[in-house]
Design a protein around this nucleic acid. Structure first.
Length: 311
DNA sequence: AAAACGGGGCT
DNA sequence: AGCCCAGTTTT
């Protein structure tokens, strides 16, 4: 959960998660829907699926990995997470390098590049991490480096007067603490026009579809969603009838507008309400009772659409 | 080496 | 509203 996500965001999810899945065996046997529901809103859903895969490996093996390599072999566990678990939980002298620690090292040593810039750059950082972890209490040192980055050596306006390393910090000495590390180059977010439809049948149930493999939010249930040219007010109904043959809509009305940022895309979603006038003949219809909708929406965009405007 | 993958924090 | 950021896997 802590990959790419801040502690304060994670805590309530972690509490609920541990109550639902207290050990690898519990997670291993849970249905994926339940896992995704518990993760809904955290994003990067591959993390949840990988965590369950890892739990299945662990539940079958019956023992925790002994070293960094053993942890890294599990799905979803990379160099950073393997080192963090090995050092914090098992006390091995494994290095860690996350975004916080990289920022601390960049400033402390005056490195004006990022670990991911090229292979030698990554090596420079991991070598530093290895030297710091070569300590009688590697877990405490690693934790301290991460805490320093998260609380003191923060990205903007670092709190150098509160920093125990300020006397030996190269960036501080040179007055460059606000210039290091260099910003990551990021692609500008592309705006994507979208339309979402909340269709009710005669019994008040809502039409939901499971997103296919390859689509974004793959495997999640979602209101019918149309993107790009298909999303325009004059075109989405034709696209709807292609996707749901035989299902006629009536009483169509605009219900609200939702914006959602996903990676390098910014979705601008017009939400529509409508009523189903025909039963339809499309494959795999999922008609969901209103009281069940909330718990089946396993991502934030769907929940925003559900809450939009008036129902 | 680059691309894909969500959502939230901060100003 | 715009900018920035607490990894891993796949291509």
């Amino acid at each position: 959960m802590l990959q790419q996500t801040q502690v304060a965001t994670v805590i309530p999810y972690f509490e609920r998660w541990m109550a639902l899945f207290p050990d690898p065996a519990a997670l291993a046997r849970a249905p994926e829907e339940k896992v995704l529901r518990a993760w809904a809103g955290l994003g990067y859903y591959a993390r949840a699926r990988n965590l369950q895969k890892a739990a299945r490996v662990l539940a079958e093996g019956g023992a925790w990995p002994a070293d960094t390599a053993g942890w890294k072999a599990l799905p979803g566990i990379g160099e950073y997470t393997a080192g963090a678990v090995a050092s914090l939980a098992f006390g091995t002298r494994a290095p860690i390098l996350d975004g916080n620690v990289a920022r601390v090292f960049s400033r402390l040593v005056g490195l004006d590049f990022l670990p991911g810039d090229k292979a030698e750059a990554g090596r420079a950082y991991w070598d530093l991490a290895a030297r710091w972890a070569d300590h009688a209490r590697p877990g405490a040192v690693n934790e301290a480096l991460m805490e320093l980055g998260a609380l003191v050596c923060v990205p903007a306006a670092p709190r150098c007067p509160a920093c125990p390393l300020s006397a030996v910090c190269v960036a501080r000495r040179d007055g460059r603490e606000n210039r290091l590390p260099p910003l990551k180059k990021r692609v500008k977010a592309e705006v994507v026009l979208a339309a979402a439809v909340r269709v009710r049948d005669a019994r008040g149930r809502l039409l939901v579809e499971r997103r296919g493999a390859g689509a974004f939010l793959a495997g999640h249930e979602m209101f019918p969603l149309f993107l790009g040219d298909e999303a325009r007010a004059e075109t989405w109904q034709a696209a709807f009838h292609r996707r749901f043959p035989g299902l006629r809509l009536k009483n169509i009305r605009a219900a609200g507008r939702v914006r959602h940022s996903i990676m390098s895309k910014r979705y601008d979603v017009q939400v529509w309400d409508g009523e189903a006038a025909g039963s339809g003949s499309f494959p795999g219809p999922i008609w969901t009772r209103e009281e069940d909708v909330e718990e089946r929406l396993t991502n934030s965009l769907a929940r925003k659409i559900w809450k939009a405007g008036n129902r």
